[in-house]
Write a protein that binds this DNA or RNA. Structure first.
Length: 419
RNA sequence: GGAGAGAUGUCAGAGUGGUCGAAUGUGCACGCUUGGAAAGCGUGUGUCCCGCAAGGGACCGGGGGUUCGAAUCCCCCUCUCUCCGCCA
């Protein structure tokens, strides 16, 4: 959620509108929202005045009754009853507006950092740095999905039989490989100060609102209507919401968290995209990194968080590049995002394997995660997260980068790198 | 799943219609005291919104209702605990 103070000044409103345009969002709804927002504010003011009147008179009635002045009390009661009816009417009007206003307020995207380049889509993302080199082969390397079927590493047919398209089954060595790299990643992050958590994979709506999945992105995850719970699309949700509705002490910051979880995504808008292999699937595992930071330190932490994710790829000797996402490609909750894209020699392309974002106070406001600053005042902290890294995509990358001429994978080499 | 009990501030715990944002204890912060500490004494100590301020409004798990007035009465929901059942 944006700082509501922005809505109070012309500068603030201009800033929100420019930000919407930069993100390629529609500003029509926002103008309509502003009208309702101010209307609601006015009504709230009126409500408070009436409530003040009622409180005062009710107190008076209490005094009159105690003094035995029954008649005067009854007269006043009739008057206050009228006020009560007015209050009830205004409350109805406010409630009608409130749902709409809240929804828009929760749907407005974060203000982008000034360093974010303008652009429509991923073609406008900015190359920040590259690490390593594309591997060379004395044969024509295969994409991971061909390796997968050639040696029965991954069973796509039975995955589909069990659950439908975009589901799969890992066999033997690949099942083990994913288990091993998750262990490796968690241990690596723990060594660098991240606290490991094992969290629920189903969360309530408050949690989904807290990190920004609701109300606007309800199509992108699985929700179990019967129990009003959602399957987490990323461990960002439970990890960040761990501290929802809490006020932390300044000395507790920063809090570095990590967790390995499965992630569930509907991929509703991705029909026909990445249909082969395990790049875009409904269920995958991921090691997540989350930082709760002092507001002044978040951009430092953002760089460190990204480097932490890069470390995983460096240890595995995988060539990658870091991209600064352009305005049109940055997710709504994020002010600034770096994607780490690993090189896949079989597919001959770079694939996003980690996305590291600084949300500033956007999620903290929604989730009411605060800290008590040195003046003893409560203030919203900053949240950040990044994959460290997506395990499924890492498996695919390892398959392509460590494939041998006969289509098998050099597991020995991989395991030697992760001990 | 069935039966019952409960949810109040950091915590414990009082409060069953007005003078209650809320006793008391505890914790915490500051001060006094002390060679230093403990004890003791004193003061302060929830959150959010509107407002330049004065001030006003809301919040006693959440939502609705009764009433001039609700922490308190009524209804619904959620969660916690106990017992029974079931179960990895």
């Amino acid at each position: 959620m944006l700082n509501p103070k922005l809505l109070k000044s012309e500068d603030g409103i201009r800033c929100i509108k420019e930000n919407l345009k930069k993100r390629q969002w529609d500003t029509k709804d926002f103008d309509f929202f502003l009208e309702e927002y101010y209307k609601e504010k006015e009504l709230k003011q009126e409500l408070e005045n009436l409530q003040a009147q009622r409180n005062q008179n009710s107190k008076q009635i209490g005094i009159l009754v105690r003094e035995g002045k029954q008649k005067e009390a009854d007269e006043l009661k009739a008057k206050v009853k009228e006020i009560g009816e007015k209050i009830a009417n205004i409350k109805i009007k406010i409630n009608e507006l409130d749902d709409k206003v809240k929804e828009v307020l929760l749907s407005l995207p974060n203000i982008l950092d000034s360093s974010v380049p303008e652009g429509e889509d991923e073609s406008n993302n900015l190359l920040v740095r590259e690490w390593g080199n594309k591997p060379t082969f004395d044969f024509d390397p295969l994409p991971h999905y061909e390796i997968a079927t050639k040696h029965n590493y991954i069973d796509f047919e039975r995955g589909v039989k069990l659950s439908g398209s975009r589901f799969y089954v890992y066999n033997e060595e690949i099942a083990k490989l994913e288990r091993e790299i998750i262990r490796f990643m968690l241990n690596l992050h723990r060594e660098d100060g991240y606290l490991e958590r094992m969290v629920p994979f189903l969360v309530n709506d408050e949690s989904m609102i807290g990190t920004g999945q609701l109300p606007k992105f309800a199509e992108e995850f699985y929700r179990i209507e019967k129990d009003a719970l959602s399957l987490i699309p990323t461990a960002e949700v439970p990890l960040t919401n761990l501290y929802r509705d809490e006020i932390l002490s300044e000395k507790d910051l920063p809090i570095l968290l990590t967790a390995a979880t499965p992630c569930f995504r509907r991929e509703a808008g991705a029909a026909g995209k990445d249909t082969r292999g395990i790049i875009r699937v409904h269920q995958f595992q991921k090691v997540e990194l989350v930082i709760l930071s002092h507001p002044e330190k978040s951009s430092e932490h953002h760089e460190a968080l990204t480097k932490q994710a890069e470390k995983v790829l460096q240890k595995l000797n995988l060539h990658y590049r870091v991209m600064l996402l352009c305005s049109g490609d940055t997710s709504a909750a994020s002010a600034k995002t770096y994607d780490i894209e690993v090189y896949m020699p079989g597919s001959k392309r770079y694939v996003e394997i980690s996305s590291c974002s600084n949300f500033l106070d956007y999620q903290a406001r929604r989730a009411k995660i605060r800290y008590k600053n040195s003046d003893g005042k409560n203030d919203y902290l900053h949240t950040l997260n990044g994959s460290g890294v997506a395990a499924g995509r890492l498996v695919a990358a390892l398959m392509e980068n460590y494939q041998k001429k006969d289509g098998t994978i050099d597991f020995e080499k991989i395991y030697s790198l992760i001990r």
